[in-house]
Amino acid sequence: MTWTQVIPAEWYLILGTALFGIGLIGVLIRRNVVIVLMSIELMLNAINLILVSSSAYHANLSAQVFVFFIMMVAAVEVSVGLAIFTVIYRRKESTDIDALNELKG
């Protein structure tokens, strides 16, 4: 009796969707740039979770490779994002995402 024989695939999908939704809400309601970045990480991990579960249910390792790539991209994204954030913080002395509103019509 393996793991995938007990838990239906939808459960993982729903879990991933919930996680993604939480991350999305975080992105939408938080004004702190760092928290927004963390929420984005949450969303990426929701996708990862769904990918790994489908890898298990479809018996296909490609999904795990994609997870691997997503992790790489997440690492890059966070490092560059935080570097940009520190530069902005040096200029603005603020972590508020709404303080970055100079690009407007």
């Binding site: 393996t2 995938t4 999908l13 890898s55 018996a59 490609s62």
Partner: peptide, 23 residues
Amino acid sequence: LPRYLASVEGSVSSLGRVLFGQY
């Protein structure tokens, strides 16, 4: 969605074979 399918062994070597072969 598939239901209750057999799982795949995510061992390092098989994953590595996919990663360094196909991808």
